[in-house]
């Protein structure tokens, strides 16, 4: 038996969240006194596959078939489930990324596994069961979920587990899953804005709210984000008004983020907004109203007019970066 981790590539490369999930899976393999096998689907250069060895994957199943060039949840789930069976892996770990969210429940259902989505910490072992801490109530709480079935699937919330180097020399094996699935899904087009840091992966997020008055002022948010190498986000009224695209809306009914640093500018801190951002490690709030509720959950606050404070902050960051 081994622990199996699915490593998702983006155009042949692995992002930091992939190494996080490998580190996490390796730690679980350690708890269970077993080895870690990774499964990669799609075309990835062996030099990139070898990088997985840095975080403790001793065996890598490489699935490189034409049929599986792009992500389709039911066929990828079949491949991962068949790898779990052939590796005799009772524990399968995925990232709770957009694709992982589509994939993990299907993998769990195929294996009749108990499933914990959105894990944020290492599980506790209780007999044959695992107790997993996961996000619930839109980050207003955590639930400890006990996985009681023989097979277990966990998906890890990005940016919630530290990378840990544990160098091994991985053995790379071609894996042929022998697909028979005939469900029809065709990917017609993939549109990715590559020039921007994506919100889900970002370590720093700069977010703007109604305090910015109008879309014409978003240059301030973008300039600050550029200076920090950050992604941009917004509160719900901003995307509702069409000032910014929906995919930037964070909060209870938008994206949940937990970057290392979240900077909120002109956002009041409504409970629904906080639900999606309060797990951020450090929170900075810039608001002209000293009574804004956001200050109650912030680490650092500046009471002031965004139009005066932000340009000065950009200058301060630029001079810090310049050394």
């Amino acid at each position: 038996m081994s622990v199996l981790v699915y490593v998702e590539n983006t155009a042949g490369e692995f992002k930091k969240s992939v190494f996080e999930v490998v580190s996490y899976a390796k730690a679980i393999a350690g708890l269970l006194n077993t080895d870690l096998t990774a499964i990669s689907i799609g075309t990835v250069d062996p030099s990139n596959l070898n990088l997985l060895g840095q975080y403790g994957a001793s065996k890598i199943l490489n699935v490189n078939s034409d049929q599986l060039k792009s992500f389709v949840s039911h066929s990828y789930a079949s491949v991962i489930a068949s790898a779990a069976k052939s590796e005799n892996s009772a524990v399968v770990i995925l990232s709770n990324s957009f694709s992982g969210k589509g994939l993990a429940p299907r993998v769990a259902a195929k294996l009749e596994a108990a499933f914990a989505p959105g894990a944020v910490a290492l599980p506790e072992i209780s007999g044959n069961n695992l107790i997993v801490k996961r996000v619930a109530f839109s980050s207003k709480a955590f639930a400890f979920t006990e996985l009681k079935a023989a097979n277990k699937v966990l998906s890890l919330t990005p940016n919630s587990f530290e990378l840990k180097v544990d160098q091994v020399q991985p053995e790379i094996i071609d894996f042929d899953p022998q697909l028979t699935n005939d469900l029809n899904t065709i990917i017609k087009d993939i549109v990715r804005s590559t020039d921007k840091v994506s919100l889900a992966d970002a370590e720093i997020v700069v977010s703007g709210g109604r305090g910015l008055k109008g879309p014409e002022n978003w240059g301030l948010i973008e300039e600050l984000a550029d200076a920090l190498g950050a992604a941009t986000a917004c509160s719900k009224p901003i995307s509702d008004a069409g000032w910014r695209p929906h995919e930037e809306h964070v909060g209870q009914t938008g994206i949940s983020v937990q970057p290392n640093l979240y900077i909120a500018i002109g956002i009041s801190g409504a409970i629904q907004h906080l639900a999606g951002v309060s797990a951020s490690k450090t929170i900075v709030v810039i608001n002209k109203d000293p009574e804004a509720p956001f200050f109650k959950v912030a680490d650092y606050g500046i009471v002031g007019d965004a139009f005066e404070v932000v340009p000065q902050l950009i200058a301060a960051i630029k001079s810090y970066k310049a050394g």
Partner: peptide, 23 residues
Amino acid sequence: AELSSVTKFETPQPRGEVTLIAA
């Protein structure tokens, strides 16, 4: 069949006091 169950809940640790910085 019941494959999993919630054993307990926890609310996040409150943050410390905010550090205010002059504008």
